[in-house]
């Protein structure tokens, strides 16, 4: 039992707009976090160092509408050094020199013998050392945001109608109506929307509804220096994302996958979807989110059955032989 999804584009509706966040080009600069705060006048949420990574905003919340996640892994990014061209390398000559020259120390030499390992380097244990002594690791960075779900649980459960679907197919809180009941917060399967403790109301990304209205792109997409955050009509973004995944796969980055782009998933597809380089939960995203209201008709049936049972129970209590 979910509300109607986003409006079908027609004469009186602009197409559904959204974000495609391509995390493979994210450099973790947090320009989006800053631009969002600036434009939307989002209050400060404390300048804390978490100590776990360069991430100091931890998660999406009422005062963090863009959140850049940082993950460090002992794993090379695809099978190549990005930005290095090997077009001029004659591999047959290189193979002939294997084990002969210092530049090609030969098979088995990528990990140093335990005795030769640098202090602290896990010799032969996890990730191999490159010939130049560097370990192979990768940084995953990803700018998270409200997904503007097709079937948005927050919107479905809002008792006041404060959360609504805009003409752009996005999900926005009307702050002059929200009474701070807090129901939307545990309803969101992504942990996005949250309550401001001092203000009592619920806040989240509006996909810059005010900017969209005048034809501007959202502040975060505007500020992103690498175009990791791309804004546009959802249909176009989906096509672009599909070709980007194909491009990355052919370049050997087999980890690349889309998240939230499938209209058949548990929330009917996200208006803001992602290209990820690992499983969603590594980034703090649920692997298979489902809009809770999908089961609501069934929930009402069970509650009705329980109500009938209760009535019957009380009736039975008054029946039969009793000493008053």
């Amino acid at each position: 039992m979910t509300e109607q999804g986003p409006p079908q584009p027609g004469a009186d509706h602009p197409p559904r707009m959204g974000f495609f966040t391509d995390t493979s080009v994210c450099i973790g600069c947090k320009a989006c976090e800053v631009a969002c705060k600036e434009w939307n006048a989002v209050p400060a949420d404390g300048l804390e160092l978490t100590g776990m990574s360069y991430d100091n905003s931890r998660r999406l919340s009422s005062d963090t509408w863009r959140h850049v996640a940082f993950i460090e892994q002992r794993k090379p990014l695809g099978g190549q050094e990005p930005g290095v061209s090997h077009d001029n390398v004659d591999i047959f000559r290189a193979a002939a020199g294997l084990g002969v020259t210092i530049a090609s120390p030969g098979p088995g030499a990528t990990a140093p013998a335990p005795a030769d390992a640098l202090p602290g380097a896990p010799a032969g244990e996890t990730s191999p050392l490159a010939p130049d002594g560097r370990t192979e690791l990768r940084w995953l960075m990803s700018s998270d945001v409200c997904k503007h779900c097709t079937h948005a649980a927050c919107l479905d459960v809002c008792p006041t109608g404060s959360l609504f679907r805009t003409e752009f197919g996005t999900v926005v809180v009307q702050e002059d109506i929200c009474n701070g009941c807090g129901y939307c917060i545990p309803a969101c399967p992504y942990g996005v929307i949250d309550q401001r403790p001092d203000d009592g109301r619920a806040w989240k990304c509006t996909l810059c509804y005010d900017r969209l209205g005048v034809g501007a792109e959202p502040a975060c997409a505007k500020a992103c220096p690498t175009d990791s955050i791309q804004f546009g009509p959802l249909e176009q973004l989906r096509e672009r994302a599909a070709s980007r995944v194909a491009q990355l796969h052919s370049a050997g980055v087999l980890d690349a996958r889309l998240y939230g782009e499938d209209p058949q998933d548990g929330v009917g597809g996200d208006g803001a979807f992602f290209l990820l380089l690992d499983e969603p939960e590594v980034y703090g995203l649920p692997p298979d989110p489902v809009v809770t209201t999908r089961d609501l008709p069934s929930m009402w049936r069970y509650a009705a059955a329980a109500a009938v049972t209760l009535t019957a129970g009380v009736a039975v209590s008054f029946l039969g032989r009793s000493h008053r």
């Binding site: 979910t2 129901y183 209201t293």
Partner: peptide, 26 residues
Amino acid sequence: HDLGRPERFLNMLRVFKPTSPMNVGS
């Protein structure tokens, strides 16, 4: 008492929304 904005309690009855158990409950 638990509302963030108790003075806006009556907003609960602004709409009738079967998808929201809190609305139905109100």
